[in-house]
Design a protein around this nucleic acid. Structure first.
Lengths: 343, 343
DNA sequence: AATAAAAATTTACGCGCGATAACTTTTATA
DNA sequence: TATAAAAGTTATCGCGCGTAAATTTTTATT
């Protein structure tokens, strides 16, 4: 201290002319001290560049300002985007987000939950793996830690769910394709990892019935999260054996569609809505790359911003409410149809 | 304790029949206690599911087991992939990695360094933004915290650098294109954010000279990290005004190439090595998506695994060495040429 | 100016663990 | 079996901060 080095809050308090407990209060919640005191403290922070020891803070606080963000697969730019959005909102609200990716591995997902526990987070935002998730472990975790699920819903788990309205997605793409051409067949994985996939299939079937058409579901084999490659192989297979029931294809998600379009290109099949095209392909998600496929992908877009915003707001509400909410609300946002060249 | 709940290491020590200092030693380094004691402790951990309070640990330890990983742009699957690889290696070595993305923002990069300081990390692995990075802040950070740079080198900053040998990349693609067709023109951003881009341009010019050809560099406008869109617009422009000096194009990186191919498709220009193709396009990086472009992209691939492995090994060596190394080593790994349909 | 309410201060303790010194027990090597 | 080295034990302190009670100072209201 005499050498100008501030070692702890005590030193900083002495130099700034404010008592330590008040400084502590300030860092706990800047609004809890008088405006004039706050100004003094902030000036001193600026001058001495002091920050409290984060470990000592978190050790003693009943509730830390940590927030965990867990996504199933960070190498998927869709999740990277939404994670970025959520991350920023947490920072802006004075929380300290930490980002985790399950990398498609259920065991890793559970390990992350374990790590999160030790971080004593104020709350957690998790997009679970889905079908593969260890539901028991997740459920136990949500009992102990205020948790909001996003993107993938698991019935009854977590205090709230925020995601996209799969019916809104599929109904728009189906309606559009039908109106401007022919009713589409639905292209998906046989055993999709993500629960949204099942909802999308149901929505497709429902929508086709409403419009008076026979639903045609094409299910391809494949496991894991390499959706593009699975879509590409699956497309090659159905294009090879001619089992495609129609020339209008609606893919369950953009990553499958990316693979599908890749296969079409490799086989010299022109995709699009021009007269010389033999196929039309649409999809769901508005993946960051879907603008750059060949042709560019017609797709139903997530409202990233609103999903992120409402997820974070739900979590903060949950935290302020002491970790529980009266009912488990499921909030679904509609899609926005993005017309590009592929359909 | 009497109610079965273990509140701290003291309780756990009592239940496991080992003294607390020994337990503490074990968690600091499991190898530092006798085999028989270790077995007892591990059995007790298993039985009581005890884990030490991470905040109390880090507060008092001279050196934490925290490792920071910083990438410039996590929505780029290339960085997501390499981050995943590094992350896993850290975990396997008993460290606790935390992942950060600068999201292309130099201010955020500096903020992350600030956050990292407060985490008292044993070491940090950072792929800096490059040209836009606040070099002063980075340099100061590296003086205080053992840091290894990867992917993007900043002269003299950090204790070591691990990346890819840009000459190996470009020389292979140039040589291949020249041998199998014509010497390529080099397609890049005018003011690239990443220092690798400059090295690639130099390598291109050098390689063309060696082969006895005139280097032809096409520089397109654009700022930021939306490389695909920049590449697409740039391609449209040069294809529009016919300023392309040759029909063989080597893109500085895959993301630009993705945009380039997208533009070609939109203009009905067939790309590839078949006789009916009017352009050949190759690139560098082997981006996860480059297998699914139309046509699939011929590119020089990073050795993700070796870069990740050597980065982590360098950091651990640095840590064991007390935070400094005799010389600042720069390790570059060669590329592996991946032949696909585009060139 | 009087008074109550709000805010800041002083004092004191506790959190869970790291680290050390002095001592005792176990193990290794002869 | 003797003996030194290695490992474990007991006891005690300190880290940097949260938190609470009692007290004093400042602010707001009449």
């Amino acid at each position: 201290m005499s050498d100008g080095k501030i070692r702890n809050m005590e030193d900083f308090a002495a130099l700034s002319g404010i008592s330590r407990p008040t400084i502590s209060k300030y860092f706990n919640d800047p609004q809890s001290v008088r405006q004039s005191t706050r100004a003094k403290i902030e000036e001193a922070i600026e001058r001495y560049d002091y920050r409290p020891n984060i470990f000592a803070m978190n050790q003693n606080r009943k509730l830390t300002k940590n927030v965990g963000i867990v996504v199933p697969y960070l190498a998927d730019p869709f999740f990277a985007e939404i994670a970025r959005n959520i991350e920023q909102r947490c920072i802006d609200s004075g929380y300290r987000p930490t980002l985790f990716s399950s990398h498609g591995d259920p065991e890793l997902e559970v390990e992350i939950l374990d790590t999160l526990r030790s971080l004593k987070p104020a709350g957690v935002l998790i997009a679970p793996l889905g079908r593969a998730s260890r539901k028991g472990a997740l459920e136990r975790f949500c009992k102990d830690v205020p948790t909001v699920l996003f993107d993938s819903n698991l019935e009854g788990i977590g205090a709230a769910f925020v995601g996209s309205d799969n019916f809104s997605f599929v109904s728009q793409t189906v309606e559009y394709m039908t109106r401007t051409g022919a009713p589409p067949a639905f292209f998906e994985m046989r055993t999709p990892a993500n629960p949204n996939a099942n909802k999308r299939r149901s929505a497709y079937i429902e929508m086709m019935s409403r419009l008076g058409f026979d639903p045609k579901v094409i299910q391809i084999d494949g496991e894991g999260w390499a959706f593009e490659e699975i879509g590409r192989r699956g497309a090659h297979k159905v294009l090879e054996d001619g089992s495609l029931p129609t020339d209008a294809i609606l893919c369950s998600n953009d990553r499958l569609a990316i693979g599908f379009l890749s296969a079409c290109y490799e086989r010299g099949l022109k995709v699009g809505r021009n007269p010389d095209c033999v196929l039309r392909v649409a999809s769901n998600d508005d993946h960051p790359f879907s603008k750059f496929t060949c042709p560019a992908l017609t797709t139903a877009a997530h409202d990233y911003e609103r999903v992120a915003e409402h997820s974070v707001d739900s979590l903060f509400l949950l935290i302020e409410n002491g970790g529980s909410l009266p009912t488990r609300e499921e909030t679904l946002f509609p899609a926005r149809l993005v017309l590009r060249a592929s359909a």
